[in-house]
Design a protein around this nucleic acid. Structure first.
Lengths: 225, 225
DNA sequence: CCGCGGCGTTAAGAACCCGTCAAGATCGGC
DNA sequence: GCCGATCTTGACGGGTTCTTAACGCCGCGG
């Protein structure tokens, strides 16, 4: 089920969106200003963000930049009929689409579908194999030899980020942001624990990692083959 | 350079777009109807498609479906003020964005940038090679001959600044500011230590630098090739 | 000939990072 | 409401990295 976060300070619009989206089988959560919106973004991890630019506490482009600082989740901007320059600024700040009020609900839903469609499908190579184990991104399964390996949700998230960036170095900052959310930049502790768990479950010799490497001071790297 | 294909049957709009896009350093090609548009799409392989729905020979959604059959190139649809249902149909057929005429050129350009940005999530970072070693900025990796070279975080940061400014002189002031932060302008000591480390790890003869050169009194310079 | 400033080299202690373990705290299913 | 699984948090030892200072070399100008 697709999860949508709506940030808007006008109660009627908020309510209308919530009703319509829920009826269309979206999971909706809401926030009424920029600050709590950014917090909700980190907490809820929606698949799409619908953002009204006319917020009481922050400039809309600031919210966009705040979100774009750590995730590429699609952003659809709503705004009152108005300045062309605002559109340009929002889009260049990293928004994906821009809808002018008043808007038709059908149009918004169509743009929402388009945004989700663009964001989700990356069925390039859902299966990554090493000599020791196999990771199936689509099925969220890890196989080692003949048997399945049981991973906890957090273990899986960490592994997924590393595998999707195979061969590249992933900084601790980025790992923490993608798995736990921004604001956990200092909890490098978590990474040590979960890397240890993953190595125990996946490495032939956990004390001498061959696939899940540490780059001291920088981050971690998954090495296939 | 980004390549754009515009499919539109109204000569004035076609001309206006061509002039504006060319001025913005896009490479533009055009087609005046659906059939030749699809042909141009296959022949020219543009990075973005701008498609007017009011074509004489085909329904717009048919063109979209024709394109979507074999490529996920971003599609921005133009259309006369009109039916909401047309928007929905176009977006659901696979269009990425929808702009209603009359539109502001600035807005269209911003939406164009947004579409291109989304489509190319891999801003390829260069790989710099010398006869002795290879620096891969994206993977944060240095290879010498067949083996990887292990760099500490600070060593990597210094090398990265130099490589990103290959062939150019980088002042000590700037190196210190970018790696250690401003306020370290006087700690030229650090540079000597880390340049020595890098040379020991990368140069064939560390005492006679060939790639990491000192410009006495000024700074350092990385010389590829 | 000598002093001086910039540079390269080296070494040692301090600071930091990582892997490991284990004890709460929390969550979710029954 | 109970119980197991999972997540958070703190502490420790061993290793690495950073910082800092001292020393020697070289070219230059006095």
């Amino acid at each position: 089920m697709t999860r949508v976060l709506v940030i808007d300070d006008e109660a009627p619009i908020l309510r209308a969106l919530k009703i319509n989206l829920t009826a269309r089988k979206y999971e909706v959560c809401t926030a009424a200003d920029g600050a709590s919106g950014l917090a909700a973004m980190a907490r809820e991890r929606p698949d799409v963000l619908i953002l009204d630019l006319g917020l009481p506490d922050m400039d809309g482009t600031e919210v966009i930049k705040g979100v774009r600082g750590w995730t590429s989740t699609p952003i659809i901007v709503l705004s009152a009929w108005g300045q062309e320059s605002q559109k340009v600024a929002a889009l260049d700040a990293g928004a994906d689409d821009y809808v002018t009020k008043p808007f038709g609900m059908d149009e918004l839903l169509a743009r929402l579908r388009a945004a989700v469609r663009r964001a989700s499908p990356a069925p390039d190579e859902p299966v990554v194999t090493t000599a020791e184990f196999t990771v199936d991104l689509a099925r969220k399964r890890v196989t080692r030899g003949t048997a399945d390996v049981r991973l906890t949700p957090t273990e899986w998230q960490v592994l997924e980020v590393l595998v999707r960036n195979a061969d590249r170095l992933v900084t601790q900052r980025r790992l923490l942001a993608e798995v736990w959310g921004p604001g956990y930049h200092n909890e490098a502790n978590y990474l040590r624990v979960y890397m240890a768990n993953l190595r125990r479950k996946l490495e032939p010799d956990p004390s001498v990692p061959r696939y899940l490497l540490t780059e001291p001071g920088m981050g971690y790297r998954f090495l296939p083959g």
